[in-house]
Design a protein around this nucleic acid. Structure first.
Ligand code: MN
Ligand code: MN
Ligand code: MN
Ligand code: MN
Lengths: 219, 219
DNA sequence: AAATTAATTTAGACAAACCTAAACATTTAT
DNA sequence: ATAAATGTTTAGGTTTGTCTAAATTAATTT
């Protein structure tokens, strides 16, 4: 059984490695977890002793198969709680992250099984992120970033890749949520920003930073 | 803001003092929390420094007004989560305690407000214990223990005063739950046990230990 | 290839929450 | 009133997870 701190490290390693693809550096982890690199080194030694990570000093960490399983379990819990908060308790998508960050650490197999049933086995969370199955499978949907669309192409928002309240509140303000219909009206070559029409009514200019964080389907 | 450990101490002090009536001893707390008396002394000094308890060395602790408020908040959260688990996730009353013990520590005012609304502002939890209001009021209902009934008197179960799964599972087995109609058929003077008829169908003999833990109304 | 810079780890501390063993206070029995 | 028994606190440790400062390794420049 892992502690809350260990679980947060495992989840951070999972996310920074892009789902287990690449190795993750100590500094990247320390920034993501808001701790000092020295603390990260300590914890990596500990997770390595528990066989949850492959850790080669000075060369970064990767999750073991067991670590990967643990990561997906925590992410499953996090995203199921987010769905609960939005669908049942009427939280907005910018309010859920901090609370789910706590609830994901509650230990009870039965709880998650029943929560999943209660919610009707949702496949995505309020930010469009896929919910790993009970068996630990992650069903990724093919999708592309808004930045990759050409002028005149359309898309429907299916996912946003940043859960910071400030970012989500910005999207609220411009009128973008999951399911919103978008169309690229113009490209500003100077900084790669795009003029985007929202639901064919109003239009805004989005920076390339923002464009990279919004995913669309059916382009 | 209190840590999980501090919250568990405050709740234990509340319960052992009978809602703030009497002072609580170090040993009583150490038994209830399954820690050593020495650890309790440490924590009491700490809670005292935070003005959550009145602590006089060698003479026990009591909650301050602030400590009392904190205790009721935690109990409110615990009981609301228990209602959620039973009513929405179909847990049985013997399965909820351990999970609620974790959920009660999740920090979010909004969460509790919305949970309360979602559940329709319940007044009692699955064990018949009253749920403190948002304002911190505890509405106790007049009730008496099953042990206090005379032969031939009737009552309806409204509360059970022990959340141990083993006790609740015992009640499941004999067919007692909240709302069950009982009648005292006979008294065994030797050990003060009673023969109790359940829903006018079957009948069982309950020990005085058990009788003290079951509350009834409308006698 | 050596030197500089950047990233990482190690050493040594600290707070929280627990422990054991020893000292001390209170209560109870003689 | 004194002694024994019981309850409680203090002293000194441990583990977990964090920190700062110093040392070490790797990467980059010259
Ligand atoms: Mn978390
Ligand atoms: Mn999410
Ligand atoms: Mn608890
Ligand atoms: Mn209860």
């Amino acid at each position: 059984m892992q502690s809350t701190a260990e679980e947060n490290y495992i989840k951070a390693i999972y996310k920074l490695s892009g789902g287990g693809e690449s190795a993750v550096s100590t500094t990247a982890l320390s920034e993501s977890l808001e701790t000092k690199p020295a603390s990260v080194s300590d914890m990596l030694r500990k997770l390595s002793a528990k066989d949850l990570v492959h850790y080669v000093k000075y060369h970064g960490v990767q999750l073991t198969d067991e670590g990967h399983r643990v990561a997906l379990k925590i992410i499953r819990k996090h995203r199921l709680w987010e769905v609960f908060l939005v669908q049942k308790l009427h939280f907005t998508w910018d309010e859920v992250h901090e609370v789910a960050e706590q609830m994901e650490h509650v230990k009870s197999e039965l709880l998650i099984k029943r929560l999943d049933e209660f919610l009707g086995h949702p496949r995505i969370d309020p930010h469009g992120d896929p919910i790993p199955t009970e068996a630990g499978e992650l069903r990724e949907v093919e999708q592309r970033t808004l930045a990759s669309l050409e002028v005149d192409q359309q898309g429907v928002v299916c996912r946003v890749k940043d859960s910071q309240p400030s970012f989500l509140q910005y999207l609220n303000r411009v009128g973008i949520q999951i399911g919103t219909q978008l169309q690229v009206m113009d490209k500003i070559p100077y900084d790669n920003s795009l003029e985007i029409s929202i639901e064919k009514t109003k239009s805004v200019i989005l920076s390339s930073d923002v464009l990279e964080k919004i995913f669309v389907i059916n382009p």
